[in-house]
């Protein structure tokens, strides 16, 4: 018994594999650094989230930790979830952060999904 149907001969398998793996293959450190750089493009929006929250509480500080997936082959950030156990900021701020990064796209796309955890630390400007 063959592991693959008869039509899938060796040249076909090789072609499929190549087709499936033509994207960049980052190592974990590179994947993290590139994703961080992508997230930093949204610092302005996230700062706006924070400034809005500061209107309610001028002394507000804290952290927001989110988990998300960087989808392979598209690079799109999906399934953004706030980790309530590791977040100390109010949920309104955390949800605003999650919304700000949802849908960002990492380029070039990676051949593998990235399962990421990032934390933002919020503190009011001193002085």
């Amino acid at each position: 018994m063959h592991a693959f149907p008869m039509p899938l001969r060796t040249p076909t398998l090789a072609a499929l594999c190549l087709a499936g793996c033509t994207f960049i293959a980052r190592g974990p450190d590179q994947y993290r650094d590139d994703t961080r750089a992508l997230l930093e493009t949204k610092t302005g929006s996230i700062q706006a989230c924070y400034d809005e929250a500061l209107k309610q509480d001028p002394n507000l500080s804290g952290t927001v930790t989110v988990h998300f997936k960087v989808e392979k082959k598209t690079g799109i950030i999906r399934d953004v979830e706030v980790d309530p156990d590791r977040s100390t900021a109010p949920s309104s701020l955390a949800n605003c952060v999650a919304k700000a990064i949802d849908g960002l796209q990492l380029t070039p796309e990676d051949q593998r999904d990235g399962v990421a955890t990032f934390t933002w630390k919020f503190s009011p400007k001193s002085g």
């Binding site: 993290r32 610092t43 990676d110 990032f118 933002w120």
Partner: peptide
């Protein structure tokens, strides 16, 4: 998938 977490928070 590659699982990763940033060790330093984004300030």
């Amino acid at each position: 998938p590659i699982v990763f977490e940033d060790s330093t928070a984004l300030p």
